[in-house]
């Protein structure tokens, strides 16, 4: 299989911050690849390098067999790019936005309607509404249509789900899966760890570096320490007590439960005994398999 994106030891610095340092990554054609990391991890800078908007200080990147620096003119028509903020014209209507971007890329809405039918279908009832008056979820869908309208080979989506509610996010991922099934290579970035599982493969990024690259399952398996989910009636006191416990390595809130990482060979019984001694009620402890967020947090700590 051909590589859609090859990144070799790319670095980029701005004034006093190293935004991306020594990143190497290969993404195959047809992959739905996720770049997962918090704000300031360097995701956006890496995206801008790949879509030919920034020149790397060091290293080289090839998209679709074309060098992002040398062949940028040839490359630009082949990629679709949706920047972090949904870049639409708020004073143009839904339809005007789409038809503008279509014309700019030398095509028409009709010519590529097939590709966006699913998504645009939901927007069509509002096609005369100004883009500025759309909800976050609808802006996101329109921006995706605009990025798709010229039938790109590779789609770059920079934080398409940030600030969008959980339902719209889920719908958005369903759309990406359908696009991906048609053979489109998609590189998407997100700060939401729970979205990582939607990707074929992911790269975890933090402060300009890549912490790990693997399938979501593979990333979860990187977590080696014993992990327990713990619950009791008084969550606040539970955190305090568990953090003070001699067997604890880390203890963080994870939804309903706390996730507790312990020294080796600690059992649920040990923990239960300790908590009962502290007068905790309704204690519930179970050993669990780590999720992506657990792995990410462990990797963050390993990298200091």
């Amino acid at each position: 299989m051909m590589d859609a994106i090859q990144i070799e030891q790319v670095s980029k610095a701005f004034a006093d911050t190293q935004a991306v340092s020594d990143v190497s990554l290969t993404i195959q054609a047809g992959e739905l690849f996720g770049l997962i990391g918090p704000d300031g991890a360097g995701k956006t800078t890496l995206f801008k390098i790949l879509v030919t908007l920034l020149r790397p200080d060091q290293g080289k990147a090839v998209v679709n067999g074309l060098d992002v620096v040398r062949d940028f003119r040839k490359l630009r028509p082949l990629i679709g790019y949706m920047p972090g903020r949904f870049s639409l014209y708020p004073d143009l209507s839904v339809e005007e936005n789409l038809s503008f971007f279509a014309t700019v890329f030398g095509t028409t809405i009709a010519a590529n309607y097939e590709l966006i039918r699913d998504i645009y279908g939901q927007l069509e009832p509002f096609k005369n509404r100004r883009a500025g008056a759309l909800s976050g979820g609808m802006k996101q869908k329109l921006a995706l249509c605009c990025a798709l309208i010229h039938k790109p080979d590779v789609l770059f989506l920079d934080e398409p789900t940030t600030g969008v509610d959980a339902v719209s996010r889920k719908e958005f991922w369903e759309m990406l899966h359908r696009l991906n099934e048609r053979g489109l290579t998609i590189l998407v970035s997100t700060p939401y760890m729970d979205e990582a599982g939607q990707c074929d493969r992911i790269a975890l990024m933090q402060t300009g570096r890549i912490l790990a690259v693997d399938t979501p399952g593979g990333v979860e398996n990187l977590f080696q320490k014993p992990l327990f989910a713990v619950k009791a009636r008084d969550t606040y006191r539970l955190i305090q007590d568990l953090r003070a416990a001699p067997f604890t390595e880390t203890c963080y809130a994870f939804g309903e439960y706390l996730h507790l990482t312990t020294r080796p060979s600690v059992t649920a019984g040990t923990i239960h005994g300790y908590l009962t001694g502290k007068q905790h009620e309704f204690v519930d402890i179970k050993p669990i398999k780590a999720g992506i967020e657990d792995s990410f947090m462990a990797l963050m700590q390993d990298h200091g």
């Binding site: 801008k48 908007l53 630009r76 028509p77 790019y81 870049s87 639409l88 014209y89 700019v104 890329f105």
Partner: peptide
């Protein structure tokens, strides 16, 4: 608005 980025990436 970020639209310049999209225009720059266009042909």
């Amino acid at each position: 608005t970020g639209t310049m980025e999209v225009l720059m990436v266009s042909p």
